[in-house]
Write a protein that binds this DNA or RNA. Structure first.
Length: 426
DNA sequence: TCTGGGGTCCTAGGACCC
DNA sequence: TCTGGGGTCCTAGGACCC
């Protein structure tokens, strides 16, 4: 692998920042964004963080704090965030073609063509342009490996004196900064490993870097070793420009209210199948297996039930009605009466490109009929894209939807829905 | 009362085969 | 009654990520 300089661009408090773009009066205020069903806090403004609100914390646990400090609340608006994300990524792409979109709010960039001393200057330029064009503030961490770029990004966020851009390569304060960073802040070290390391008196990143490689591999497998090597400056991963197509597609929800009836569960499952199948077709894939799972409230171990079942399709497909019928059969296998179901989902696996599908020995339909079904699906997908998900849907997905999620505080879809454009008064 | 959703990778262990 | 060993494939589950 040729020597590279990696940069990790991360949008600050991304979902909250998206809301702020369209409501500048939120600046300086504590703001939070909630997950589906307004259950957990999934994004916080700096002001909200300072009040002690934790990531993924259930909202009901901070009701008092919210009231006391008049914290502004938004239900998640993923259509808006997805669109804003694309704008940020498109802006970044203007600076380098070597870009890996890592998540909705993060991207790795490679700076092979930059002169080292210009890197900080150029990074600050990127930061300014993204802010100016999209309204989203970002931080940039730079290092000789992806893991170190991630670490540098943490430091850029933590130490405001660096102005949102930090290059850890040969930095005079490197050791000091690493010894002040907890191992849990390293990409690849989660709660379990951090606890394990803590038991062995390894608490900060510098201590981990000095750990024995063999011991790390034995106890944290190859992933842990890779993390260690990357922290030492040995690149183990390169920029992944072409995103592989999905290996699995999941659609699942927690219900606003628990449900008892198999008919309601079937509606919910049919609706999740529709969502998953749409994603499948968008990637020009077909699925060969469908998994269905149901569970009661996971926080209530009394009368708890959780189960899953999967079926192999007679022929890989992305055709919603067929997938719904399989899912319905799978549900029949695991549904038990007398439980309060709180969550269900559908997982599509064995994915392969549509064009590579081998026809089964006894094809259930002629290719002409197949073509008709394909056209129907792509027509429905276009309608739903244009007018919003659920405009056209299978009857099986239900009308009443007692199981539907709740989003009481969603902001308008400013950028993707004509009826919800931002209006400006003069 | 109230606790998200969508992914990937790795490993252990069972099934199966020769 | 005795009852191998090695390879591969698959799945479930646990770790991680955002």
């Amino acid at each position: 692998m040729k020597k590279r300089i990696f940069a990790l661009v991360d949008c600050n408090n991304f979902y909250v920042s998206c809301e702020k773009v369209f409501k500048p009066s939120l600046e300086g205020q504590p703001v939070i964004v909630l997950s589906n069903n307004d259950g957990c806090i999934i994004s916080r403004s700096n002001e909200a963080k300072q009040l002690g609100i934790k990531m993924a914390q259930p909202v009901f646990q901070c009701k008092e704090l919210i009231a006391k400090h008049n914290i502004q609340i938004f239900s998640a608006n993923f259509v808006l965030y997805g669109d804003m994300s694309q704008r940020v990524m498109n802006t970044l792409r203007r600076f380098t073609p070597e870009l890996e979109i890592y998540s909705i709010d993060e991207a790795f960039l490679s700076f092979t063509n930059f002169i080292p001393k210009d890197i900080i200057r150029n990074s600050k330029k990127i930061r300014d342009v993204v802010k100016q064009w999209t309204g989203i503030p970002i931080s940039i961490g730079i290092g000789p490996t992806k893991t170190l770029a991630k670490v540098a990004n943490k430091i850029a966020k933590k130490h405001t004196e660096f102005g949102g851009v930090f290059d850890i390569t040969n930095h005079p304060r490197k050791k000091e900064l690493l010894s002040n960073l907890d191992v849990i802040d390293v990409w690849g070290i989660g709660r379990q490993f951090a606890r394990f390391l803590g038991k062995h008196r390894i608490k900060n990143v510098l201590q981990f870097i000095n750990a024995d490689e063999k011991w790390v591999k034995e106890n944290m497998t190859v992933g842990g070793l890779r993390t260690l090597l990357e922290l030492k400056g040995v690149p183990c991963a390169d920029i992944d420009e072409v995103h592989d197509s999905s290996k699995t597609i999941l659609s699942s929800r927690t219900f606003a209210q628990s449900i008892r009836e198999v008919s309601d569960l079937k509606e919910a499952i049919a609706s999740y199948v529709s969502i998953a199948a749409e994603k499948l077709r968008a990637q020009k894939l077909v699925a060969s297996m469908i998994h269905v799972f149901v569970t009661t409230n996971r926080f209530n171990r009394k009368n708890y039930y959780s189960n899953s079942y999967y079926l192999e399709l007679s022929e890989p497909t992305a055709y919603t009605p067929i997938l719904i019928s399989y899912a319905s059969r799978a549900l029949d296998e695991i549904f038990k009466k007398g439980y309060e179901y709180k969550r269900a989902g559908v997982l599509l696996t064995g994915l392969c490109p549509t064009h590579s599908v081998q026809r089964s020995m006894f094809p259930g339909m002629t290719s002409e009929l197949q073509e008709k079904k394909n056209r129907l699906m792509s027509f429905i997908d276009r309608l739903n894209f244009r007018w919003g998900r659920g405009t056209v849907k299978s009857c099986a997905a239900g009308i009443n939807k007692v199981w539907d999620t709740v989003q009481s505080q969603r902001s308008p879809r400013y950028t993707t829905n004509w009826d919800e454009l931002l209006t400006v008064g003069f």
